[in-house]
Design a protein around this nucleic acid. Structure first.
Length: 510
RNA sequence: GCUCUGGUGGUGUAGUCCGGCCAAUCAUAUUGCCCUCUCACGGCAAUGACCUGGGUUCGAAUCCCAGCCGGAGCACCA
């Protein structure tokens, strides 16, 4: 008992480190997704960590869509809501939701202030030409333009008088800075392609991430920025702007990239999008896709993913997330509530076989009655009709040997029959007879189970029909699965539901 | 090439700032045993790591130097 109490006290032993200079009630953080698609598993880290800190410090969680590139990273109009839903599934809610594409005029205003402060100049160098100069630490001729000209040219940029590539607005940093990545970076450029959002479709002069994000972080009162190591130089770049405006830069934490094992698919929005377009994946919730929507459809609780993500800590080195850790977390959450059912798989290398259960030294009962949950007898039993049954061939004992049909009784494999044996459960306890799962051949539900490694067909016991869709069950000796739908409609997917199935389920994990 | 940044068991993590309590924590994984009418849950046990080499020190995962290996930026992507 004491040991139990101690264990409870140490519950929050391996939580995230404290934030630097964090004041209770005054912590503001933001997730700044690019809405170019629904989220993959790696994206869960940001809301998981921000949400956890928000709870710890009674802070604020801003979701700001950094959708400032209508061309290369073209926003997907469906992704805005998809991402908010992903966040909700993870168990969090943004206190404020902003879209950068609503805020162009704010950025222009700050650009003009920056020009006034001598912090920016319009530049018509080609990318290559400027890069060459910059790498030698040499300024381009445009750097010394007077403010009036810069204003005129920037106004012309905003007015849409230039085409892509003709003019940029650069921040005047230090052209000889020892880190070439920080020298006079581009703050605004021209993009000819209209933004997909109607309200932003008329703009042609778009800010780059470092400008837009830097301005917004200040304006929205962000106190702590968490971002990937790919943006390690951003703070240093943005600091030049902050210095011109005499703003104080927030605290910054970086973390490394997340890789996930178990999947063949790369953790990349564009890769997944491609695979969906070419039909190799059926959608964002395909169980083979390493996406949040897929986790959700498989019955993995957002909480399990969040726990795994916060366990990764805040290290700046790259990390591999083992899916087994997500599964372990999910099992913790789901095991108690998941009622047990039988699913007999019918696989090519291990087909289901049909046999009749017949009277032996005692009459064979008509049905088996295994409990819904071994730890909760009060939930009652299921009824699994016997008679003709299916079992997985690898479970079938050799000719003449016995096996125990779980919840039913002992049978002996005799030819194409299972002959009932009047034996006590002690034969199982003594280790002489194995226990296997089974399903009625005729009353069973024809089932399609979709898994990370492909679809599996099989037969579930009829009692599963009582389960509400969306519930997570455990197919005994197979694993946990989410009941997706009964009588699923046919799809044109090569392996998808044909319309013949009684049940569609998604496999979660063992 | 220039500039950042990091290297603790299979995976993640604690410890590193302020050297000794670290023959290195916890979780997960794997294996074995127990429990069990599941290969789930629960219990027990085992396996397994401080990148390398120097230096400082009575003492180094922790400090210093060098090397090796990795990640990132040097975009009119985010």
């Amino acid at each position: 008992m004491l040991a139990e109490l101690d264990a409870d006290d140490e519950e929050d032993e391996h939580v995230l480190p404290d934030l630097p200079n964090a004041e209770e009630g005054a912590v503001v953080m933001r997730a700044a997704p690019n809405p170019n698609g629904p989220w993959h598993v790696g994206h869960a880290r940001m809301p998981a960590v921000i949400g956890t800190y928000k709870e710890r410090y009674d802070g604020e969680f801003i979701c700001r869509f950094d959708d400032t590139d209508p061309e290369t990273k073209r926003p997907d109009l469906n992704a805005y809501d998809a991402i908010l839903e992903d966040i909700e599934y993870l168990g969090f809610e943004a206190d404020r939701v902003l879209k950068a594409s609503d805020r162009l005029d704010i950025y222009y205003e700050h650009a003009r202030d920056l020009i006034d402060a001598g912090g920016a100049y319009t530049c018509s160098c080609s990318g290559e030409a400027f890069s060459a100069l910059k790498n030698d630490g040499e300024a381009c001729p445009h750097r010394e333009k007077d403010a009036e000209t810069v204003h005129e040219e920037f106004d012309a940029m905003v007015a849409g008088e230039y085409s892509a590539g003709e003019m940029t607005l650069r921040v005047r940093t230090d052209i000889e800075h020892k880190n070439p990545a920080l020298r006079d970076w581009v703050a605004f450029r021209i993009i000819d392609t209209p933004h997909p959002r109607e309200v932003a479709a008329d703009y042609r002069c778009w800010p780059m991430l470092d400008f837009q994000s830097g301005v917004d972080d200040h304006l929205t009162g962000v106190t702590h920025i968490i971002r990937g190591i790919d943006l390690q130089d951003s703070a240093k770049r943005q600091r030049f702007v902050y210095d011109y405006f005499d703003w104080e830069y927030p605290e910054v934490l970086h973390w490394g990239h997340v890789q996930v094992d178990e999947y063949d698919v790369k953790l990349s929005t564009s890769t997944i999008k491609e695979l969906i377009e070419t039909g190799e994946l059926t959608g964002w919730d395909d169980p083979r896709a390493p996406t949040i929507q897929s986790m959700r459809r498989r019955g993995i609780q957002g909480r399990a993913l969040v726990d795994s993500m916060t366990d990764l800590g805040m290290s700046t080195s790259d990390v591999d997330l083992a899916m087994s850790s997500v599964y372990a977390n999910n099992r913790d959450l789901v095991d108690d509530g998941a009622n047990r059912y039988f699913l007999v798989r019918d696989r090519e290398d291990d087909p289901a076989v049909t046999l009749s259960v017949v009277d032996g030294d005692a009459p064979a009962p008509e049905a088996g009655h295994p409990p819904l949950h071994p730890d909760h007898p009060d939930r009652g039993d299921r009824t699994v009709p016997a008679g003709r049954v299916v079992v997985e061939s690898s479970d079938l004992p050799s000719e003449g040997e016995r096996v125990w049909l779980k919840g039913y009784g002992c049978v002996r494999h005799t030819g194409d029959e299972l002959v009932f044996v009047d034996a006590d459960i002690d034969v199982v306890r003594d280790g002489d007879v194995d226990v296997i799962h089974w399903a009625p051949a005729d009353e069973g539900l024809e089932t399609l189970l979709r898994t990370v490694s492909g679809d599996v067909r099989g037969y579930t016991e009829p009692a599963v029909a009582d389960v509400d869709p969306d519930a997570v069950v455990q197919f005994e000796r197979v694993g946990f699965a989410r009941i997706d739908a009964f009588e699923p409609a046919a799809t044109d997917e090569p392996d998808g539901p044909t319309g013949e199935e009684d049940l569609l389920a998604y496999y979660a994990h063992p």
